[in-house]
């Protein structure tokens, strides 16, 4: 069965073509979606391709950084930490040139690692602007990920403010160095936000670690509480047991690299 393909040429056109999202499959970079279609794992009736949607811009204005959903991961590699470090470890140069930010936020958990930009964006306090049923909506990335609804991501925004950032990760040496675990930490003003990749099917914020730090705990003691915030799984990269063993040390490393 041939699919109907929509190729909007502006963000507004993309939102209206998406409508309430029913029966629409979005293809952005296609690094996950195209093989699914080619190999018959997915049979979309209507496909919305973002290649010409104009959603591929990064804007820094009015005290905020806004990253369009169709921005390639490669465009983040020299940008703000801790997002830059996470982006630099997605796939390889060619994958990063094609893979998009929106695809990274919307990829369902799969057998290979996919959502490595989620945790650093949570740590940056990012908000997601999306279109779909009920019109446009802005919510925190944590809420967006928790809602698991099918909406069209338009962009993500975080405050353009002085910050200190920390990032620590464990990789599995392979043809691609897949990220087993990563910790992103951001300190802005008096607040520290911490989020983890590999602690569950999506990036997760770590409220226990943040509360312990706010209460004056040492980085070591605060890091130990991360096990209350995560629910890691066994997968092809590592076991849940291994992740639980390694994660507190990585959290401490990320926290220790933050400036006072």
């Amino acid at each position: 069965m041939a699919s109907e393909v929509l190729l909007p040429t502006s963000p507004a056109e993309a939102a209206s073509a998406f409508g309430d999202g029913s029966g629409v499959t979005v293809v952005a970079g296609g690094t996950i979606a195209l093989p699914d279609i080619t190999h018959g794992r997915m049979h979309p009736a209507r496909v919305l391709m973002l290649a010409r949607s104009g959603l591929d811009r990064i804007e820094r204005s009015g005290g905020a950084v806004t990253i369009g959903a169709a921005t390639p991961v490669a465009a983040l590699v020299d940008g703000d930490e801790p997002l830059a470090s996470a982006a630099a470890h997605v796939g390889d140069d060619e994958i990063r040139g094609q893979a998009t930010v929106g695809g990274n936020l919307c990829a369902s958990a799969g057998e290979t690692p996919r959502g490595d930009l989620q945790a650093p964006l949570i740590a940056l306090g990012a908000r997601v602007r999306s279109a779909g049923a009920g019109g446009e909506r802005v919510e925190s990335l944590e809420d967006f990920l928790a809602a698991d609804s099918s909406r069209l991501v338009l962009d993500v925004t975080y405050d353009d403010t002085p910050r200190s950032a920390g990032y620590a990760a464990a990789w599995r040496p392979h043809a691609h160095h897949y990220t087993i675990l990563a910790v992103a930490a951001v300190r802005e003003g008096g607040e520290t936000r911490v989020a983890v990749t590999g602690g569950g099917p999506t990036g997760r914020r770590c409220p226990s670690v943040e509360a312990a730090l706010a209460g004056g705990a040492s980085t070591r003691d605060a890091a130990a509480t991360v096990l209350d915030d995560v629910d890691p799984a066994d997968d092809a990269l590592a076991s849940a047991w291994y992740r639980r063993r390694v994660l507190p040390g990585l959290v401490q490393k990320a926290l220790d690299s933050l400036a006072g």
């Binding site: 970079g29 296609g30 195209l34 391709m49 140069d93 060619e94 994958i95 040139g97």
Partner: peptide, 8 residues
């Protein structure tokens, strides 16, 4: 350079 298998 682009992966042609991933590019619609």
């Amino acid at each position: 350079p682009r992966r042609s298998c991933l590019t619609p």
